[in-house]
Amino acid sequence: MKVKIEEKYQAAIIELSGSLVGGENAELFRKKLYELIEQKKKNIVVDMTNVKMVNSTGIGILISGLTTLKNARGDLKLAHISDNVKGVLNITRLNNVFHIYSNVDEAVKSFG
């Protein structure tokens, strides 16, 4: 799994590529996400274009990132999720708490 960080307008974008499943992969993502949160970044977009799979550990990191940011009056938005990931979010009903956009630009713009 690769994790790339960039900033666009008022948002930080985390671009993930690979499978967001447990172990070192997920740990790297968690670390980068929390680094951004510690830098007081409030608007974070996770670019999921190249994430084909996600498991419970990966989902757990997304949820805790979302709740941490919401408590700080920020948000964690998802961009361009695969059908597989969409399926997981629908089943778990997490599609009701995550804002999901079809691409990064839309997600970034949504922060206004």
């Binding site: 419970s56 989902i59 757990g60 949820i63 805790s64 709740t67 941490t68 089943i91 778990t92």
Partner: peptide
């Protein structure tokens, strides 16, 4: 529990 742990 903390928010990264969940149950379906």
């Amino acid at each position: 529990t903390d928010t990264s742990k969940f149950v379906t």
